[in-house]
Nucleic acid binder design. Structure first.
Lengths: 338, 338
DNA sequence: TTGTACGCGTTATCAA
DNA sequence: TTGATAACGCGTACAA
């Protein structure tokens, strides 16, 4: 399979090389006749423009850099929908996605921007205060954040509205007559890394509980897996409440905790309530199906890409902070109201 | 943040631009003195070579194209370790990873190769007979397959040895005195797509069972989720066996099936045996921990990247078909031998 | 409506 | 040991 250049196409079509270029870009009126001839030649040679040459000449790579939280010992569950949606949105506008792992830290961002490997960068998994932000903000390549750090350094942020998620969960438990709430914390490493959404959720949960006049106990940190869930269940069992409402913001903890509670004879939806923060898909597949506030990875990703292309091509001004509203879905783990 | 070129570096270091290039590539002896001056200038300008220009001149992109099974309505569980490991291995040799989703079909491969977007392609999630193979085999860019299709078209294949995995599972059940085996099938869409490993596993399981003189019943297809697992459990319960051994090659089905069996009062490890094909991590976290034959996504990915770089840079001949041997780990879901 | 010619930032060849 | 200089393949300003 030989590889052809626009010159080859030009020769075959009997036009100049620049005409080929203009046919492809549509940046100049072309007669129907030559247009046809060029497209035909392109077709016959299965010509594809060389990405490097194009990037060099046009200063556009048609590549989106995506910094994903690999290798930082972090929750990687639920990451796939983000990647998938971002890749899809990129393709829809003839862009590709270059993956960079977060364990590179700011070096990855410098490389993406410095080498002109991409036209824009999406940065995920932000800490509340993140070293990479200073670098990201000082780079020519536009950077979109998925997450809302304490100081966005002027960059565009897109994320789920975790504060609203907390309010929804607490509000539902308040409305169904619970007299005490417990908030299950994230694993220690997540808390230590101070991921931005942890704090956003917890703070809002606290003040929402206060607003409803409900005592809120924090059970934290809770690691993943059976044993930790067992311990947490024990601590929940020890709480003296008529109707206890438990909020679980760490998706991974939901299922093990439900099991652990069951094992203690505490049936969620009968003896106490559990609301989890997890995708609708995961919640519906739960055992039992769990009442949840949705993480909307697809919506968030789509919006991030929308912001990206508005910045890059449409040149309209997207909102600086763009929060997606989560949805509460009632399933089987919350006691019916009295 | 301005962006500098090698020309800027050259001027600052007081050398010619080609010298800068040679300092970076090390393809020519450079005096210690100028070498120092150049590196210093690079440092002061935080110079990074332009990827497009480099690719254009060197015919090397330092990018690996990865075709992942997004958007084909396919099992995407267990995909992350592949991506993660591949990205890590790429970075270790100063390469990046460009993601292409499988829903593009062969168009994605054509684009990667035609536009010279990458130096090599890794193709995952192969069907036994896969349309993309003809295209992949006819492209200048080397393609490495993760999976073993019926006809690899001369391309290099790396994968888990699914036949050996089946033999291990069946062998273990035979050794522990089971008198009847059941093989739980994959969901219908997987079977319909005829993914290469499905058949490799099933065929080997069948002949291993025959070799041990054990009757093997095929329960298929079994969709994911509660209900399907319940049905499968019912069919298993109906089997007339003294000691029934169940083999579950679809990772996702293991956990729901264990639950469904328990719900019927059939306790795996007490009343019957279950061996799953899933990663050690997933098996250990199972409820209960499940005896498994390991899928080794990390090993497979590492080997694929090793193959890739041997082809690309080391220029040594890797094996055409490279199979990783799975491991059997005894946990709690298999009856002890009599 | 189309062609010519230059520049994008590297790598690599040929001289010195 | 180093410096000019010609590709690499495409986009686009300038001419016609």
């Amino acid at each position: 399979m030989a590889t052809f250049t626009s010159k080859d196409v030009a020769r075959l079509a009997g036009v100049s090389q620049s005409t080929v270029s203009y046919v492809m870009s549509g940046k100049r009126p072309i007669s129907e006749e030559t247009r046809r001839r060029v497209l035909d030649a392109i077709d016959r040679l299965t010509y594809e423009p060389n990405a490097g040459a194009r990037a060099l000449a046009s200063q556009r790579t048609k590549v989106v850099g995506l910094v994903v939280p690999f290798g930082v010992g972090v929750d990687t569950t639920g990451l796939l929908p983000f990647i998938e949606t971002i890749a899809g949105a990129a393709r829809a506008r003839d862009h590709d996605v270059l993956l960079v792992t977060a364990d590179e830290g700011s070096a990855g961002i410098r490389r993406l921007a410095g080498r002109s490997l991409c036209d824009a960068i999406i940065l995920m998994d932000l800490q509340t205060v993140d070293d990479r932000l200073a670098v990201a903000a000082n780079v020519r390549t536009p950077v979109i954040l998925i997450g809302v750090p304490a100081d966005p350094h002027g960059m565009h942020c897109v994320d789920l509205d975790f504060a609203e998620a907390a309010r929804l969960a607490v509000g539902e438990l308040a409305a169904t007559g619970h007299d005490r709430l417990a908030l299950i914390g994230h694993p220690a490493d997540i808390v230590l890394r101070d991921l931005n959404y942890v704090r956003r959720f917890a703070d809002a949960a606290r003040s929402a509980a206060a607003g409803h006049g409900l005592p809120l106990e924090i059970i934290a940190p809770v690691e993943w897996g059976r044993e930790a869930a067992g311990d947490a269940a024990a601590r929940l069992a020890a709480i003296d409440a008529r109707r206890l409402g438990v909020v679980v913001p760490a998706s991974n903890t939901v299922q093990p905790l439900l099991h652990a509670l069951n094992a203690r004879g505490l049936v969620p939806g009968r003896d106490l309530s559990v609301i989890g923060l997890l995708t609708d898909a995961a919640a519906a597949e739960g055992e039992p199906p769990v009442t949840n506030v949705s993480l909307e990875p697809r919506d968030v990703s789509r919006r991030a890409m929308q912001t990206l292309f508005r910045l890059l091509e449409d040149r309209t001004a997207p909102p600086l902070i763009d929060l997606i509203t989560p949805q509460l879905t009632r399933r089987q783990t919350v006691l019916p109201g009295p």
